[in-house]
Design a protein around this nucleic acid. Structure first.
Lengths: 329, 329
DNA sequence: CTGAAAGCGCTTACAG
DNA sequence: CTGAAAGCGCTTACAG
């Protein structure tokens, strides 16, 4: 339609500079007029690469039980990848807790459609997943995970994060600082947040108070247990948002004033830490992790290896209205 | 490697039944051994379709400011599509509020890589988006939106939702029921939730109390304003989660007991309404909308039209610990 | 700077 | 039930 060969069209649309102005103009005009867009599959086939990665947030349980808390990773990774000229396939991957295998036949494992895989560790990852991924033979980067034998992974220094948050409370004069968490699963954030909290207290000669060594599944009960302590903690750190919600709710039920009677703070994802949120939190650098992971995966795909070893990221403290100076006793 | 022609391999891997058991066995064994997976791009090119859709959650503002509240749609749609043998490309689409155009060159508009588009309406959609999408010439389904001239859209009956939630409070004996909302933007949920709330009150001969006609951007101030009303509402409905968070926080700060002194409830997305959440909410059927939208888009792609007209969905009430019977006055 | 030919890896349509 | 040929729509590599 532009009166030129298809190869000239191809060159113009790819931005090659080896085309004369006149022809370029003709092509651009014709493509605008017809709304022509090249087909991605034909491009991919000829180039031998997709310029696309797959992102996976695996989970146990049926598809109905979504866990949108990980969208921060997906969203940020997609934007970073777009800047690098990559697109992203979102792969739903649900595990049957009884068979320890996936529901159905995920396309990820039956068809090649991406140059690499970004995997978000949501807390628990069954052994079958890394096995199946490795068998795919393409570059893989893990998010929110410490590297396991030869894996490439992006993670955050949770000991440091916990120390920062604990220190904030110490500096406000608190001495009885509690910790509300959930103990099952073995994600490094569970171990390290607790460890950092205990360490920071220890260095000031303090001990945990209002922390259950083996908290059960009934979080509301744990919240009540913490508030029932005598003497009650003057401040509590929550492992994550859902626990904070319960504790705040239980406090509001009893008329315990926050922060006048009780300071509350928590570990939160980047997007939970927006200026609109009223609470004090340690923002876990999810967005940074996603960016770093995306860049790293593209480097792996393009260069075959990464130039610099991974370093853990550190979160940021956002003081808010739910913590205050400890009152005189 | 299996000692058969490539077309036989193709037939086996696609599950055609026109292959003898013997050859099928050979092929399956060889593909297991070598880890062979067919390339999606070659398949797509030959078939003339991608068996893949693109999902878009457009937003104003830079990429850094993610809004993960919409992941419920993305996640559920992906699962539903997987059941229909479709995969999903996640397209980041950010609008520059100054130019009212997109940042960069979204691949969505420069390359054909999907058979259709699922668009999530996050509250505000600039006119440029429907224009650009229509120009693509492929089937489009909107989520969380009422259909606009000829569009296919999936939505929820927000008047009904608001009436259900208001009725819940009325049945608990509340008469001074407030409403906390944000008034800018013109999403139908903003208009209809307020409308349903006012309607339901009116039918009982009651009027709104503790509701600002034109709330500003300072939500914390609105929360204080509501609590400062004299007499104070005995119950407040919140337009969404972030407002509820602020109101609960402001209550906790003042030592107002929830729900003994003040009942709180809100409109929440499906995933916010998990059993772990302590609050009373009207669960907006996001997951259902996503499923319906996904099925509808696939039908449009395969059949060219939808067989049944769209009907609005209705949400579900989850009574929780933040509402209680109004105390005698 | 421009273009004709070849080929990416599948599946469709046809032949046996 | 099995296979050889053709072709999907691009881009690479080559020729002018």
């Amino acid at each position: 339609m532009a009166g030129v060969s298809q190869i000239t069209v191809s060159r113009v649309l790819r931005g090659s500079n080896k085309v004369s102005k006149k022809l370029r103009q003709k092509v651009l005009e014709a493509s605008q007029r017809t709304g022509y867009r090249p087909r991605g599959d034909a491009r991919a086939m000829r180039r031998g690469r997709f310029d696309r990665i797959a992102i996976v947030v695996p989970r146990y349980g049926l598809r109905e039980e979504g866990r949108p808390g990980y969208f921060g990773y997906v969203d940020t990774a997609a934007s970073e990848l777009a800047d690098l000229d990559y697109s992203m396939i979102f792969e739903p991957l649900c595990l049957n807790p009884e068979t320890d295998d996936f529901y159905g036949f995920p396309k990820l494992f039956t068809e090649i459609a991406a140059d690499g895989v970004l995997v978000v560790n949501p807390g628990v990852v069954p052994p079958v997943l890394p096995q199946r991924l490795k068998a795919m033979g393409c570059p893989i980067v893990w998010l929110n995970q410490k590297p396991d034998d030869g894996e490439i992974a992006v993670w955050t220094d949770e000991i440091q994060n916990a120390r920062i948050l604990t220190r904030h409370l110490l500096e406000l004069g608190h001495r009885r600082i509690g910790y509300m968490w959930c103990g099952h699963g073995d994600h490094y954030s569970m171990r390290e947040r607790k460890e950092g909290y205990v360490l920071e207290l220890k260095e000031r000669g303090l001990a945990p108070c209002g922390m259950q060594e083996h908290p059960g599944d009934d979080w509301a009960e744990q919240a009540r247990w913490i508030l029932d302590q005598n003497p009650r903690p003057t401040a509590v750190i929550c492992y994550y948002r859902a626990l904070y919600d319960l504790l705040l709710h239980e406090s509001a039920r009893r008329g315990i004033r926050v922060p006048e009677d009780l300071s509350l703070c928590l570990f939160a994802s980047t997007w939970e830490s927006s200026p609109l949120r009223p609470f004090t939190c340690l923002a876990v650098p999810e967005a940074e992790m996603a960016k770093q992971g995306a860049r790293c995966l593209v480097e792996l795909i393009r260069e075959g290896s990464i130039s610099e070893p991974m370093e853990p990221l550190v979160g940021k403290l956002y003081p808010g209205g739910t913590t205050a100076r400890a009152s005189e006793e």
